[in-house]
Structure formats: C-alpha cells, structure tokens
Write a protein that binds this DNA or RNA. Sequence first.
DNA 1: CTAGAACTTGAGGGTGTCCTCAAGTTAATC
DNA 2: GATTAACTTGAGGACACCCTCAAGTTCTAG
Lengths: 212, 212
Amino acid sequence: MPSARPLRRDAQRNRELLIDAARTAFAERGLDVPLEEIARRAGVSIGTLYNRFPHRAALIDAVFADRITATAALAEHVLTMADAWEGFVFFLEHVCEWQAADRGYSDLAARHIPEATATEEARRHGYALMQRIVTRAQESGALRADITLEDLAFVIWGQARTVEATHDVAPRAWRRHLALMLDGLRAPAAHPLPEPPLRPEEAARAMRGRCD
Amino acid sequence: MPSARPLRRDAQRNRELLIDAARTAFAERGLDVPLEEIARRAGVSIGTLYNRFPHRAALIDAVFADRITATAALAEHVLTMADAWEGFVFFLEHVCEWQAADRGYSDLAARHIPEATATEEARRHGYALMQRIVTRAQESGALRADITLEDLAFVIWGQARTVEATHDVAPRAWRRHLALMLDGLRAPAAHPLPEPPLRPEEAARAMRGRCD
DNA sequence: CTAGAACTTGAGGGTGTCCTCAAGTTAATC
DNA sequence: GATTAACTTGAGGACACCCTCAAGTTCTAG
C-alpha cells in the first residue's frame, strides 16, 4: 500500500540514509543502539529521524522486515531439499550465521517487537515454515520425535548468547556449540525429556517478556 | 583478615541490611539493578551505600563470594560420587537450578567482575574443580572425549538465556533444554565437531568482553 | 556527660538517552 | 519567481542512573 502522499524528494532521501545507517548500527550494536547515533551516522538531525520514524519499532520494521522474509525464503528452500535432516541443519546453520553477522537480527530472535508489524508478520510466516521443517525431519526419522517448534526457540536463544559472547574473540566458535546441540537433537541420541514442552502461548509470552 | 578498625555498631548493622537488600535485589533483577533501589530496600540512603561499598563490585563480592564458594563445594562433592557421568549431570543441574533461582548468579556465569576479587578467586577455584569433573566423566567413557571445560561455558551461557526467558512463564522449562544439551554431550552421540575448542584465554576474553 | 571521631543524609552536579517543538529552510506547484 | 506545504533543525525538558560532599547526627571512649 503506497502511502496517500509520496514523500518529498529530500525526505525520501533522508529516509533511505536513515535506514542504511540503522542497518549497520543495529548490526554492530544491537537493537538498543541509541537513536541519536543512527541519526548522526545518517548525517541528519535527531528530529528528522523522529519525523520519518515515530518510534524505534518503525525503524526496526524498515530494516528487518525483508531480513525476516529472507529467513522465511530460506525455510521454503530447505523444504525442497532431498534430505530432511540436512535441510534442518542447513536452516539452523544459516540462521546462526546471520545472527553472527548481525547483532540486531540476533536480538530479534529473542524478542517480540509488537509494534514492528511487518517484521512480526514475516516472523509468523517463518514459524509456520519452521514447523514444517521440524515435522519433515522427524518423519524422516533423523530428528528426535519428542521435540517441538518451541524447543527450537531454546536452541536459538542459547545460540544467540554464544554468538554474542564469542563474536569478537572467536567468530566461528558458535559452530562448535551448534554442533553439540545438533548431536543432542538427533533421534538416536534421544533420552526421555524431563519436562513437557512449552505450549506455543508460553513461548510467545517468554518472548513478550523481553519485549523491549 | 579483620579490618584494622571494626565498624561502629550502626555501620555494621547498615552493612548487613545492605547485603540482605542486595542479595534479594540481585536475585530478582540481576547484577545491573540500580544501586538506589538497593539502598531504598535496605532503608538507608544512597550515601550510606557508597560509604560501605565504594562500587558495585564490592557489593557483588559481599553477596556472591560465598555463593561461588558453595558452587565449588558442590563440585568437590560431585567428585566423590560413584558414577562420574551422574556427577557431571548432578553438577550442571544444580548450577542451573541456582541460575533459575537467582538472576544475579546467572549474570555472574557470563561476566567477569575483575574488581570482585573474592568472587573471582572462588570462581577460579571452581573452574579447576570443574575441569576435574569433566576429565573424570570423560575417563569413565560417558562424556564425549572431544569437549573441553571451555565448551561448558557455551552450555552455561545458553542455559542462562533459557532460564531468563522462561523464568516467569514456565519456571522448570530449562530442564528440558538442559536435557537436550546433555544428550548432545554423551559419548555415543558424538559426531566430529567443526571447530577447535576455545583456548582458555579466549574464553576468558569472551567473558571479559561483557564485563560490565 | 562530653568531645570528637565515625557515620548518615539527601540535595545536586554529571552523563546519557528519549522525545518535542518553535523557528528556520527547502522542495513542489502555479 | 512567489507561495505554501513539507520538511529539517538542534536546543532543551524529562527521566534514570551515577557518584560526591558539606552539613547534620550518633556512637563510643574517656
């Protein structure tokens, strides 16, 4: 839906400068980077930032909506791969790689931003596809049968922490942690789990808790 | 080492009130809780807090040094258990339980606080014991041979994130994540790991990065 | 009981971030 | 080129947290 009035040329230009600046700032310093730093990097005043994006979530939406859509596209691609387990691993590896390359993306994995509507919409779509990746890998017999989509949230949260901690010191270290985790997710490794899985709305509330 | 002069009675009392207040405040809100909140909970002024504890790390030290010593004691106990793998699991479960019960303890797992000298000293001792727990479990054949003490840091960092996220929503959910992780740590589950382990000083730097 | 050292207090200065708005500037239109 | 709506600007108020210090209070030793 193109907005009622198009932006004036200079405003449009500033909007793009801001999105570029926000992209790199979020990537380097996470979603909590000061908005004034984004304005400075874009070479505009803080007032202009607020003119274009009334709140942080609007900026996050502008930067990340397509990133999350790309994650969904990755998921779609994975569903076409011949080996379901390989697809499952391929998907997790790529998501973690993106986490490692972009601290903002990594933050998004652990937080809902309710006002970032396009991002959240894309996320919802991505979850549906991830559910299919999980189910397919389970049906193939390679992924343990007792885990759920919500359990993947654990994996991704934990992975995000490892990525953050080791990013500057050993940028590829997360691969080792992921490999350990994957060994625990293989069907032959499965021992009975001590707790029932999170219900979907519990997982949602867990993310909403850290919402902003 | 008793200090040169003992504190005046009222000062001693305030010191204890502050430690008690800090203990619960750290537990509920983590190590970054505002110092003014601790003073308020203790019923003393912010000035008094600074008189007793010149910086946050001194307060952390007063609250957590014995907590970390208790962790080391747990480790010692585990080394006397008959089954090395059971001991390894027992240790991790208890550490995670403490993480779940105390957000400050959980923060400490991911951060060095160089000025908190007693805490850091106790930590160092704890690490040495953990190394023995790992080695013993590996020698028993139950724990995969290719992991190191530093890899446990991944496990504990990731676990901390899960504990935080699910604490209010499903306080026992972390047990499920830990169980998945443990299944990846059993020797029969092992597939070759893609990266070399962190060197100890890399792990130390990873923690120093998030230091304060 | 008194003197003085030890202690407490909270107002206030410093910093960093958020967000607003009145005044000035610029692009689009005729 | 003039008009006006759209836009930019940055100073500044609000807030939260840090930490200090001069003035007032309380403990303790003699």
